[in-house]
Simulated scan of single mutants.
Amino acid sequence: MVSIFRGYRNWMKKLKPSPPDEPMTGHTLWYTRCPVPSPLGLAVQLGWLDEAFQKAGVAVQSVLDSPQQSVRGSHFSHHLPWSVRQGGNIPALWARAHGASTRLLGLSWTDEFQAIITVGNTHIGQARDLRGRRLALPRRPSDQIDFHGATALKGIWSALTTAGLDLKDVELVDCTNHETALLATTQANLFGLRRRQPYFQELAALAKGEADAMFVKGAEGIFIANLIGAQLVVQTGQHPDPIIRVNNGCPRTLTVDNALVQERPDIVARLVSLVDRAGQWADEHPADTLRFVAREMGCSEEAVLASNGPDLHTTLGLGLIQEQVDALAFFQHFLFEHDFIPNDFSVTDWVYLTA
């Protein structure tokens, strides 16, 4: 991956950061990340985030570990001052489109399994066979952000595009789930897990004969496809065109609120350097990286390998490659066109400190 860090490092050389032991009473750096492969997640698991900022006199707290729902909600809305987030890009784009004062520091692009699957004797063997068929589409009307629906719709669009088809060529079957996203909460029917596995509404639609095919992604998608003995229709996660591959998990955005950028750019520089270091560590520790990512995702190492491939450890760097920024901009406009975000905006202008 071509790194942005030449530009960042030139910028950081011009900074006059506060001494490491300068106290910063009253300030807390809030962090949050999705349960996905990310260098920020690695830095947290390795203990580097606490260590690096304690030396700067900055208290570090997890958004999702807060007992207050108003704080945990910042995982999606990014409303907390002095906060950083890395994870799926849809919440980051949604927050920006709703006026959140954030800046994009970099992208981590880790390709993953993305596919349309079917079951039974549907006679759907390839993407072109989807014409006129019913595709399950998850809908989460009770959620602040319907990123499940947006992710699936983009996955369906990508699959159809590979065969010269469009969304108008298929019937989308709404699979509505009125549960809300669970943020660091517990429910008896989760049986001790942190969150419910996705796809159960779409699976029910397939089982009832209400839909012919569905979209799945990532290690969880691999597990589901394996569980039901699915037939693969088309896989787009390794497609050579990033416009086809771009989705909620590709790329994963590292964003920070603008208050931190304005008040303490040296802290932002420290953060970028730390995430950069975590990506370099991953490149040198493939087995440990796989283990840490599987732990982060709550999946088996086997499923992560099947989804992300044996080179996972080489893909956790932070970058701002123009091709990837352009793909993210395309996806942002896709979300706007399909009413998942309220406003169109310039992803390029959102970027902070490009090389």
Rank of each mutant, 00 (worst) to 15 (best):
V275I: 15
Q144G: 12
F345L: 11
A159S: 15
D276Q: 15
L335R: 02
D21Y: 10
M12G: 05
G164M: 12
T176H: 00
L105Q: 09
P81E: 11
F53A: 03
V36Q: 04
R277A: 14
P138S: 04
R6Q: 13
S83Q: 04
R6H: 14
Q68A: 08
T122G: 10
L353H: 14
D311T: 12
A152W: 03
D50K: 15
G120M: 03
D326I: 00
A225E: 03
K217Y: 13
A306N: 08
A269Y: 05
K217L: 12
K154V: 12
P141Q: 01
L42D: 08
P67Q: 01
T28G: 00
T32D: 07
E337D: 13
L328V: 04
V325F: 04
S3C: 09
A184E: 04
P310T: 05
F113A: 10
L153P: 01
Q324R: 13
W281Y: 04
G279L: 15
C299L: 02
S346E: 03
A92C: 10
S346W: 09
G106Q: 11
V170S: 02
L172K: 00
L153N: 02
D212K: 01
D344N: 15
T102Q: 13
V2R: 14
T354Y: 07
A163N: 14
Q61H: 10
L46W: 02
L290S: 04
G7S: 08
G221C: 09
R277K: 08
D146Y: 05
F292A: 09
C175Q: 05
S158E: 08
L260I: 05
